[in-house]
Computed example of a mutant assay.
Amino acid sequence: MPDPSVSPTLDLQLTWRGTSGRIRVYDHTVRAETSFERDGVVQVPVDRARGWRIEPCDFDAVCVEFVCEDETFRVLLDTSDERVARLALERALGAPLPPAS
């Protein structure tokens, strides 16, 4: 877990059609939370994820998927944030998984 006194290098968040998502990227770790497809806001277990990818969600949102062994957590971001999110996540977590479809 990152030191709470350290600012993230990137902090993206979106409230979209009644759901919320946030991704904070630090030098070597990522923290994320989402309410998409959930009963409330949950912390994404990024450290348990076997990989991540960015998929289209709608014309005005993209979906960052953190793929864990037993489930996938989806964090929605604005389409304009896709490029910077991809670069930051690759730097912190490595290359993305191939597309789901």
Rank of each mutant, 00 (worst) to 15 (best):
P45S: 05
W16K: 04
P4E: 01
S20C: 11
G94C: 09
Q13P: 07
V30S: 04
E71Y: 02
T34W: 01
A32D: 08
W52V: 15
P4W: 00
L77G: 03
A100L: 06
F66D: 08
P98S: 03
V42G: 00
A32E: 05
V67P: 14
T79C: 15
A85C: 14
E69W: 03
W52C: 09
S5A: 12
Q13N: 14
V64S: 05
G21C: 01
C57A: 05
D60G: 02
E90K: 11
E69T: 15
E90V: 14
E90P: 08
E71C: 13
C68S: 08
D47L: 06
E55G: 07
S80W: 04
G40C: 10
Q13G: 11
T9N: 06
R17T: 13
V64K: 02
V42N: 01
Y26I: 12
A92E: 05
L14G: 02
I23S: 10
G51K: 11
V30E: 04
F73Q: 05
S35A: 13
R24S: 15
Q43G: 07
A85F: 10
G21M: 07
T72H: 01
V30Y: 01
R53K: 03
E69H: 07
Q43L: 09
S20M: 11
P45T: 05
W52Q: 14
E69G: 04
L87D: 14
P96F: 01
V30H: 11
L12Y: 03
L76Q: 09
V41Q: 09
W52A: 06
P56H: 00
S7T: 08
A95M: 10
A61T: 15
L76A: 04
V46M: 02
R50D: 06
W52M: 12
Q13F: 07
V62M: 01
L93H: 12
L77K: 05
T79I: 14
L77F: 01
Y26S: 10
P2I: 08
C63F: 00
S20A: 12
D11Y: 03
V67C: 06
G21N: 04
H28T: 15
S35Q: 12
E55K: 04
S5K: 09
E55F: 01
D58V: 06
D78F: 07
T15W: 03
V62K: 00
G18C: 08
L89T: 00
I23R: 09
E37S: 13
F66N: 09
P45V: 09
G94D: 10
F59C: 02
F59T: 15
P4T: 08
D27C: 06
T79H: 05
D3E: 07
S5T: 15
T9A: 01
T72S: 10
H28D: 15
P98G: 06
P56G: 07
G18M: 03
L89D: 01
S80K: 08
P45H: 04
L14N: 04
E37F: 05
D39Q: 06
S80A: 12
D60M: 03
Y26V: 11
R91S: 14
L87P: 09
